[in-house]
Write a protein that binds this DNA or RNA. Sequence first.
DNA 1: AACTTTATTGCAAATCATTAACATTATGGA
DNA 2: TCCATAATGTTAATGATTTGCAATAAAGTT
Lengths: 231, 231
Amino acid sequence: MEERKYRVLLCEDDTNLGMVLKNYLELNDYEVVLERDGRLGLAAFQREKFDICLLDVMMPNMDGFKLGEEIRDLDPDMPLFFLSAKTMKEDIIQGYKLGADDYITKPFDSEVLLLKIRAILKRNEEENRISENIQFDLGSYHFNPRLRELIHAGKTETLSPKENDLLKMLAENKNDLLPREKALKKIWGSDTYFNGRSMDVYIAKLRKYLKEDDTIEIVNIHGNGFRLVAP
Amino acid sequence: MEERKYRVLLCEDDTNLGMVLKNYLELNDYEVVLERDGRLGLAAFQREKFDICLLDVMMPNMDGFKLGEEIRDLDPDMPLFFLSAKTMKEDIIQGYKLGADDYITKPFDSEVLLLKIRAILKRNEEENRISENIQFDLGSYHFNPRLRELIHAGKTETLSPKENDLLKMLAENKNDLLPREKALKKIWGSDTYFNGRSMDVYIAKLRKYLKEDDTIEIVNIHGNGFRLVAP
DNA sequence: AACTTTATTGCAAATCATTAACATTATGGA
DNA sequence: TCCATAATGTTAATGATTTGCAATAAAGTT
C-alpha cells in the first residue's frame, strides 16, 4: 500500500494564476503539472498519468471544453474540473454535459477547490476499493490479484507487482483489446519508448506463465495493444 | 474496568471557540488537548492517546479532512467528528460523511455535541468489549492476544507486546494480505526505514514460534506485506 | 543488578524493474 | 511483390530495492 501523491493536470493560460494554484496545490501534497494551453495539456495527458484534471475554459490552441472531450475519449472515468471566469449558463451546461465533475467560476476560494478535489478523489477511491477483491478464472488457471497469486494444477506462482498489474488489466479486458497506452500510463506512469519495451518484456513473462493451457493466449494487435484470449 | 477520563483531541483554529469548547468538555469530565491547526493536531495524535477526535474542517496547514485521513491511517477505528461552518456545500460534505462518525455544523448546540460524543464512545466501548476477548486457532496453536499467550502442545509461550500485536494483526487477516504499511503505522506508529527493519525482525521471531506446525507459514509478498497462511 | 523487551545495525540472499542485445513479424508504400 | 521501417518477441545482464535474520545496543522493569 504505497503512499503516493495524487497527480493533477492543471491547464491554465494565465501564468500568474497558474503558478499560484500550482504552488498552492503542491503545498497541499499534490503533484502538479501545469500546461499553458489545450494542445500542450493534451500532450501531457497522453504522456503521463493523472488522477484529476483542472481545465481553464478559455485557452489558446484548444479550449478547455474541447480538451475535456479529448480527455474523456482517452479515459472516460477521469475526473474533470472546469475553471472559468464566465458565468454564462450555456458554458456551465456544456461543461456538465461532458460529465464534468465540477465547474468552478473564478475568482474562487482555493480552499473550497481543495475540498472539492479531495471529495472527488475520495469517491473514486471508494469505487476502486470495491473491485479490490476481485478474482479471475482464466481457463484452468485461477488468478488472485490481491495476493498476486496465479494458481494452476495446485501449483501457486507469486507474480511480481508489475506482472500482477498487467495480468489484472488484461483479465479485466478479457477477450477484448487492452490498449498499450492505457496499460503504460496506468502501470508505468507514462507512455515512453523504454516503458513500452519493459511492457513487452512483461508480456513475454506472462505468456510463459500461461503456456500450460492452450486455450489461453495473449495476442498482439499490432500498433494497438494486447488481447487476452481465454474461455 | 478502571475509571479513567476520556481523552479528546480538539483541533480548532478559532481560539475563542476552541477554549470555550475545551472548558465545556472539561467541565463534563473529559480530558481535552486543544491544537490550533492540522499539523499540530497530527503531532498530538501521534504523541498521545485519545478516545475521540473533534476536527474543524477549515484550518491552516492541514485541513480537517486531510487530518482525519491521516488519523484514520494510524487508527482505522478512531471516532472522528468534523466541525464545520454551515456554508459549506453539501456535496463536499457528502464525500466525507462515509469516514466520519458525525458531522456537525457550526454554530452548534454544545449539549447536543456532548450527547453525540457520549453515544459514540459508548458504542465503541461495547465493540471493544466484544473484540477484546477474541482468540484464534492457528493450526495446532492456540493464540490468546489478551493474555499474550501462544499455546502449543500444552506449552505456553508469553509473547512480548510487539510480538503479540503483530501476530494479532496477522491472525485478524489470516490467509489474506497484511500490508506492511498498515502494520507499521498501527504498531510502530510510523512507516520508516528502521521501523520496517524492526518489523522484519519480529516476523522472524514469530516464524520461530510457529515453526512446530508445517501447515502454518508467514509468507512475504514482496513489496506489499505478509500473509499468515493457516488452516 | 538481572532480566525482559525493543531498537538498531550489518550483511547476505532474494526479488524486481529496466535496459541491452538480437531475433522476428507486421505494415504500408514503391 | 518486395523492401524499409517500425513494432514486437525473447533472453540475459545489470543495478536497485526489499527481505531474512543474527548480533548487538539501548531502554525499560523488577
